[in-house]
């Protein structure tokens, strides 16, 4: 292979083998990808640009354990041409990877006080590395709650793992669905309703929020009315991305580039943008 000029390297995917594929939901799989020896070191919240050969490239968050960089773990929901090709990959197939890109969740801020992890649907994927990080150093944090909502029970991601957390004492888990299904005995309603039921000391609490934009807006509002400081509410934004490195202009969000200034933002840094339509 012609060695890429170091200048062009950030724009050229490396082709790594898929080690295993785990079906999570009807439309969602988790790929375990094999980076070269040394692994892919990343921070919780960062994403990669994944290429399906000859089809296209899309941004996908890393959903694995930052403490285990020899496996690159990414959870992908099939919604269109590229994501459906990626979710159809089999072990041994090659996938194009660039990254990791973007900033991470402000985990440093969270130490020493209560933590709320609020996720909607596939939004749990970029937050799972946060939970892994907290669990490896559990005593550094106060009460930790995962508030997770999905459209229906069959849309809840990582249920086996969640059941494990529910059985333990490290994380309080509260689940909800927009609409129940036979066999669902849990709560029905939007994820913001869970905030009232979670136990946390608002002063000093850090909240990490990821889900559909509308869900994040209402979560921010509910957290603020519960007394959480705007500066301590972090959200992960989504915009179309064609480069991941600040060159293509697609991911602009007001004065920000989601790929290089985000994807994680503190709500206090984007007050004017939060409620503005079509930014």
């Amino acid at each position: 292979m012609a060695l890429p000029d170091p200048l062009i390297a950030p724009l050229v995917p490396a082709w790594w083998p898929v080690r295993s594929v785990r079906r999570e939901l009807a439309d969602t799989v988790t790929l375990e990808i094999e980076p070269p020896p040394g692994g892919l070191v990343f921070e919780p919240g960062q994403f990669t640009m994944l290429s399906a050969f000859g089809i296209g490239e899309i941004p996908i968050s890393i959903s694995g354990d930052p403490g285990a960089p020899h496996a690159l773990v990414q959870t992908i929901r099939s919604v269109g041409p590229v994501s459906s090709a990626l979710t159809a990959l089999r072990p041994g197939d090659r996938i194009g990877v660039r990254g990791p890109f973007g900033n991470g969740w402000p985990l440093e801020d969270a130490r020493g006080a209560d933590v709320l992890v609020v996720a909607g649907g596939i939004g749990l994927a970029p937050l799972r590395p946060v939970l892994y990080t907290i669990l490896t150093d559990r005593d550094a944090y106060g009460r930790v709650s995962l508030l997770y909502g999905a459209r229906s029970p069959s849309g809840l991601l990582y249920l086996d793992e969640i059941r494990g957390w529910m059985a333990g004492l490290d994380i309080d888990v509260l689940l909800t669905v927009d609409r129940g299904e036979p066999g669902w005995h849990g709560s029905v309603g939007v994820v913001t309703d869970l905030i009232r039921r979670a136990s946390f000391e608002p002063a000093g609490t850090t909240a990490f929020v990821c889900g559909p934009e509308i869900m994040m807006r209402f979560t921010k509002q509910a957290l603020e009315s519960a007394g959480v400081d705007e500066e301590r509410i972090a959200v992960s934004m989504e915009r179309n991305m064609a480069c991941g490195v600040g060159l293509c202009g697609h991911c602009q969000f007001g004065p920000f580039f989601v790929c290089k200034d985000g994807p994680v933002f503190r709500c206090s840094d984007m007050v004017e943008l939060c409620w503005l339509k079509e930014v």
Partner: peptide
């Protein structure tokens, strides 16, 4: 601004 297109 640019976009990327993969042409097999």
């Amino acid at each position: 601004c640019t976009t990327a297109e993969d042409r097999p």
